[in-house]
Amino acid sequence: MHLARVIGRVVATRRITGLDGEKLLVVRPVDERGEDAGATLVACDAADSGLGDLVHVCDGRESTLALKESFVPVDATIVGHVEEFAVDRDVAAGAGGVADVLPGDDAPQGGERTRAGTTTGDDALPADGPRTGRATRDHGTDPAR
């Protein structure tokens, strides 16, 4: 599972049974700064995402479990819309993520936890503000949901 930015959409009228009605979006994985990290991929959308959104993507076999049909040829599905993404810059740098490019001077002293991303980052991640709705999908009759 990873975070990604929605950068486009795919329309495919003729598609395999089971993928009917699934929205296909082009997403690009992001790193700790919300910047591009890795190859773009096409993902189904289970969270009403739109262009430019920062989203949570589930990959692999589990990605189909978020769809109406769970035995379909899908290997990535958007399962959440990210409202806030907080990163500890020092920890991220120590883990080898973005050590050489993370700005360090403007961070609070004493290694305090700082936020990079949707809430306080300079290059704000999603620009459309928090959403209040919920994913409006039919996930069957499981009472636990």
Partner: peptide, 23 residues
């Protein structure tokens, strides 16, 4: 663990679960 992620609009299976960013 390098960060935390908040996704208010999400698949119901994630309800009540904490999401972490890890490297």
């Amino acid at each position: 663990v390098v960060g935390t992620v908040v996704t208010p609009v999400q698949h119901p299976a994630y309800d009540g679960r904490r999401l972490l960013a890890v490297r």
